[in-house]
């Protein structure tokens, strides 16, 4: 187990290093931030001064070396726009995005698992077929379009929910979170639902396939032979086995949820990391973009590690075989 863990962490570090090079090169190729930051009437001397202050006059490899050196000390650069540590600027937005992704994740489980189980128990029934064909919509409709439609319906027409922004927050362990206030939840609901829709479809598919497979297993037949109620069989025997693939896939998808949040946050003007990224790209605020990408890679890697651990927690077979090896 320890060897396995160390190997996994080693792999993760390698991924982060490779990403650092790629991210730095890619971002360096985008536009000239000095031109945007400076007054349009600025002289060449003034432009050079800005470039020198930001370190943009040095050769590429030197900038990279400085970037790596600083990054190792937890400094991912200073935002050109906010004149603050890029990491600090992003971390301020992190709770909003994490919260959005988390609520979306919970929604996609709450929507996807029951529907998937219903469809899996009676795959040929009307309900099952309707659920499965509707779930295709969830896959194919574009995220931003769904967001706009939801805004039109619930915010503009019905005026039930706010169209944009983030609601009131309360501090939980020093982190400002909005999902514990009514106002915050009402702001979260539409963007979270938008973000959850695609994942719900995914969960429905996995849950349906999982339920069908598990229902055919000998242990379900034995459970029935014991005289258990269908309710107990589904809620205990089927659900627990079926959740293994669901948790695996959803855990891996949490990362892409954060990435998808870029579009959703922009549509809903939700002040999270994703919106910050789009704004920063528009303003050529390189350190923010670099810091965002590095942080995302880091989060991905952590999530993958956590999923592996979680997987072991649900499935005793994994837990025990790894304990031995």
């Amino acid at each position: 187990m320890l060897v396995y863990l160390i190997r996994r962490i080693g792999q993760s570090l390698l991924v982060i290093a490779v990403m650092a090079v790629l991210v730095f090169l890619a971002v360096y190729a985008v536009g000239d931030p000095v031109a945007i930051l400076a007054n349009p009437e600025a002289t060449q001397q003034e432009l050079d001064a800005i470039a020198a202050r930001l370190g943009l006059d040095r050769p590429l490899w030197e900038q990279f070396a400085i970037f790596v050196w600083n990054a190792l000390q937890g400094d991912l650069g200073t935002s050109f726009v906010y004149s603050e540590s890029a990491l600090t600027v992003i971390l301020e937005r992190l709770p909003a995005t994490m919260e959005l992704a988390f609520v979306a994740l919970v929604l996609s489980i709450l929507i996807g698992v029951p529907l998937g189980v219903i469809a899996g128990l009676k795959p040929d029934g009307l309900a099952g077929r309707t659920i499965m064909s509707t779930s295709i919509l969830g896959f194919s409709l574009p995220n931003f379009w769904i967001g706009l439609m939801l805004i039109l319906l619930f915010a503009v027409e019905l005026q039930w929910l706010p169209a944009s922004g983030r609601g009131d927050t309360v501090d939980v362990l020093g982190v400002p979170l909005s999902m514990f206030t009514l106002d915050g939840l009402s702001h979260l609901l539409l963007p979270a639902f938008t973000l959850a829709l695609y994942k719900s479809s995914l969960v429905i598919r996995i849950a349906q396939a999982g339920t069908r497979e598990v229902m055919l297993q000998d242990y379900v037949r034995f459970a029935r032979a014991k005289g258990l109620s269908p309710r107990r069989i589904v809620m205990v025997h089927v659900l627990k086995n079926m959740m293994i693939p669901v948790v695996t896939v959803l855990g891996l998808e949490l990362g892409s949820m954060i990435a998808f949040a870029v579009v959703t946050e922009t549509v809903f003007s939700y002040p999270g990391m994703g919106k910050l990224l789009i704004d920063s790209i528009n303003r050529l605020d390189r350190p923010i973009v670099v810091a965002y990408l590095m942080l995302t890679v880091f989060i991905f890697v952590i999530i993958n590690l956590v999923v592996d651990m979680l997987y072991a927690a649900i499935d005793p077979r994994v837990r025990l075989s790894e304990a031995k090896g």
Partner: peptide, 29 residues
Amino acid sequence: RGKDVAMIFQDPMTTLNPVLRIDTQMIEA
């Protein structure tokens, strides 16, 4: 089922639910 008539099956490797403890599977019966 399980009260007046009980049944056991061919493959012992698949007849018990792999993710539930033995006590859970017996007590529920």
